[in-house]
Amino acid sequence: MSDLPVKVIHVESGKILTGTDAPKAGQLEAWLEMNPGYEVAPR
């Protein structure tokens, strides 16, 4: 599992989470399930 943060964006508000606020790569799927409305942000 990776500890690198994955940049995500809230589709409706446009809020972007990066760095320490962003979910870790190894926890991404579970985090997205618990935080509806967020998607992986385009690079």
Rank of each mutant, 00 (worst) to 15 (best):
residue 32 L to W: 00
residue 26 G to R: 10
residue 41 A to M: 14
residue 42 P to V: 08
residue 33 E to M: 07
residue 36 P to V: 01
residue 1 M to F: 13
residue 41 A to K: 04
residue 5 P to T: 15
residue 27 Q to S: 09
residue 42 P to W: 02
residue 28 L to F: 02
residue 34 M to Y: 02
residue 30 A to F: 01
residue 11 V to Q: 03
residue 4 L to P: 11
residue 2 S to F: 11
residue 8 V to Q: 09
residue 36 P to C: 12
residue 7 K to F: 06
residue 6 V to A: 10
residue 38 Y to K: 05
residue 30 A to C: 07
residue 3 D to T: 05
residue 8 V to P: 08
residue 31 W to V: 07
residue 35 N to E: 01
residue 9 I to S: 05
residue 8 V to E: 10
residue 32 L to V: 05
residue 7 K to A: 15
residue 22 A to W: 03
residue 27 Q to Y: 06
residue 40 V to C: 07
residue 42 P to Q: 13
residue 11 V to H: 04
residue 30 A to T: 09
residue 26 G to F: 12
residue 38 Y to T: 04
residue 30 A to N: 12
residue 29 E to P: 10
residue 34 M to E: 12
residue 4 L to I: 15
residue 4 L to G: 02
residue 32 L to P: 01
residue 30 A to L: 07
residue 2 S to D: 13
residue 2 S to V: 05
residue 5 P to I: 11
residue 32 L to K: 10
residue 33 E to R: 12
residue 29 E to N: 11
residue 31 W to Y: 04
residue 28 L to E: 08
residue 34 M to D: 12
residue 41 A to C: 12
residue 19 G to S: 14
residue 12 E to M: 10
residue 4 L to R: 13
residue 24 K to L: 06
residue 8 V to R: 05
residue 37 G to R: 02
residue 21 D to N: 10
residue 28 L to Q: 04
residue 7 K to E: 15
residue 42 P to R: 09
residue 40 V to W: 02
residue 36 P to S: 07
residue 29 E to G: 10
residue 30 A to I: 03
residue 5 P to A: 14
residue 5 P to W: 09
residue 28 L to I: 11
residue 28 L to N: 05
residue 26 G to A: 10
residue 39 E to I: 11
residue 27 Q to A: 12
residue 6 V to K: 13
residue 7 K to Q: 11
residue 34 M to R: 13
residue 23 P to D: 01
residue 5 P to L: 06
residue 38 Y to L: 02
residue 12 E to T: 10
residue 3 D to E: 12
residue 41 A to Y: 13
residue 42 P to D: 15
residue 2 S to R: 14
residue 12 E to N: 07
residue 28 L to P: 06
residue 4 L to F: 13
residue 22 A to E: 04
residue 39 E to Y: 05
residue 9 I to V: 13
residue 36 P to M: 00
residue 33 E to F: 02
residue 3 D to Y: 03
residue 12 E to Y: 00
residue 32 L to A: 03
residue 11 V to S: 13
residue 7 K to N: 15
residue 2 S to Y: 05
residue 10 H to F: 00
residue 1 M to P: 07
residue 33 E to A: 12
residue 8 V to G: 09
residue 8 V to K: 07
residue 40 V to D: 06
residue 6 V to P: 07
residue 12 E to S: 10
residue 9 I to G: 09
residue 7 K to L: 02
residue 43 R to M: 12
residue 33 E to L: 10
residue 29 E to D: 11
residue 43 R to A: 13
residue 28 L to M: 07
residue 31 W to R: 09
residue 40 V to N: 01
residue 26 G to Q: 11
residue 33 E to N: 08
residue 37 G to Q: 08
residue 8 V to S: 07
residue 31 W to I: 06
residue 11 V to D: 05
residue 10 H to N: 11
residue 34 M to A: 13
residue 8 V to H: 01
residue 36 P to D: 07
residue 32 L to R: 04
residue 40 V to S: 03
residue 43 R to K: 15
residue 9 I to D: 08
residue 41 A to G: 04
residue 23 P to I: 00
residue 11 V to W: 05
residue 22 A to S: 04
residue 27 Q to K: 09
residue 37 G to H: 00
residue 3 D to I: 01
residue 7 K to W: 03
residue 8 V to D: 11
residue 24 K to G: 06
residue 2 S to T: 14
residue 10 H to V: 00
residue 22 A to T: 14
residue 3 D to V: 01
residue 11 V to M: 14
residue 6 V to E: 09
residue 36 P to Y: 04
residue 11 V to K: 15
residue 34 M to P: 10
residue 26 G to L: 03
residue 1 M to L: 07
residue 12 E to L: 06
residue 27 Q to C: 11
residue 34 M to G: 09
residue 8 V to M: 02
residue 38 Y to I: 03
residue 37 G to E: 06
residue 30 A to S: 11
residue 4 L to T: 15
residue 42 P to Y: 05
residue 42 P to H: 14
residue 31 W to E: 11
residue 23 P to A: 00
residue 6 V to M: 13
residue 35 N to T: 06
residue 7 K to T: 14
residue 9 I to H: 04
residue 24 K to H: 06
residue 31 W to F: 07
residue 6 V to Q: 10
residue 23 P to C: 01
residue 10 H to Y: 00
residue 37 G to Y: 02
residue 2 S to C: 09
residue 42 P to L: 04
residue 6 V to F: 06
residue 33 E to V: 03
residue 38 Y to H: 03
residue 31 W to T: 07
residue 29 E to W: 01
residue 38 Y to R: 02
residue 36 P to W: 01
residue 42 P to M: 06
residue 1 M to V: 06
residue 43 R to W: 04
residue 5 P to F: 14
residue 36 P to N: 06
residue 22 A to N: 14
residue 39 E to P: 00
residue 43 R to T: 13
residue 4 L to S: 14
residue 23 P to K: 02
residue 14 G to R: 00
residue 21 D to E: 14
residue 27 Q to H: 08
residue 9 I to F: 03
residue 35 N to L: 01
residue 11 V to I: 15
residue 12 E to R: 11
residue 43 R to N: 13
residue 4 L to Q: 14
residue 6 V to L: 11
residue 1 M to N: 15
residue 34 M to Q: 14
residue 23 P to T: 07
residue 1 M to Q: 03
residue 6 V to H: 12
residue 20 T to V: 11
residue 32 L to S: 04
residue 31 W to A: 08
residue 12 E to V: 06
residue 30 A to E: 14
residue 7 K to G: 07
residue 3 D to G: 02
residue 1 M to G: 04
residue 34 M to V: 09
residue 4 L to C: 14
residue 12 E to P: 12
residue 39 E to G: 04
residue 41 A to T: 06
residue 10 H to A: 03
residue 43 R to S: 13
residue 32 L to I: 03
residue 26 G to D: 15
residue 39 E to A: 12
residue 11 V to P: 10
residue 27 Q to I: 02
residue 39 E to Q: 13
residue 30 A to Q: 14
residue 39 E to D: 07
residue 33 E to K: 15
residue 23 P to N: 05
residue 27 Q to V: 09
residue 5 P to H: 11
residue 12 E to H: 07
residue 32 L to Q: 07
residue 7 K to S: 14
residue 5 P to K: 15
residue 11 V to F: 03
residue 10 H to K: 06
residue 39 E to V: 11
residue 10 H to Q: 02
residue 34 M to S: 12
residue 2 S to K: 15
residue 6 V to S: 09
residue 4 L to D: 15
residue 10 H to I: 00
residue 7 K to Y: 05
residue 38 Y to P: 02
residue 22 A to R: 02
residue 26 G to S: 15
residue 31 W to D: 12
residue 28 L to R: 04
residue 11 V to C: 09
residue 29 E to A: 12
residue 12 E to D: 10
residue 42 P to C: 10
residue 43 R to E: 14
residue 1 M to K: 08
residue 6 V to R: 11
residue 41 A to L: 13
residue 32 L to H: 06
residue 41 A to S: 09
residue 40 V to I: 09
residue 29 E to T: 07
residue 10 H to R: 01
residue 38 Y to W: 13
residue 8 V to N: 09
residue 3 D to P: 03
residue 3 D to C: 07
residue 8 V to T: 04
residue 37 G to M: 10
residue 21 D to R: 08
residue 32 L to F: 03
residue 21 D to L: 11
residue 30 A to W: 06
residue 41 A to H: 07
residue 6 V to N: 09
residue 32 L to G: 05
residue 6 V to T: 13
residue 36 P to F: 00
residue 23 P to R: 01
residue 7 K to I: 09
residue 10 H to C: 09
residue 1 M to R: 02
residue 39 E to C: 08
residue 4 L to A: 05
residue 12 E to G: 09
residue 4 L to W: 10
residue 36 P to L: 01
residue 8 V to L: 09
residue 41 A to I: 11
residue 11 V to R: 14
residue 26 G to K: 12
residue 3 D to L: 01
residue 23 P to H: 01
residue 29 E to M: 03
residue 5 P to Q: 15
residue 9 I to W: 10
residue 5 P to C: 10
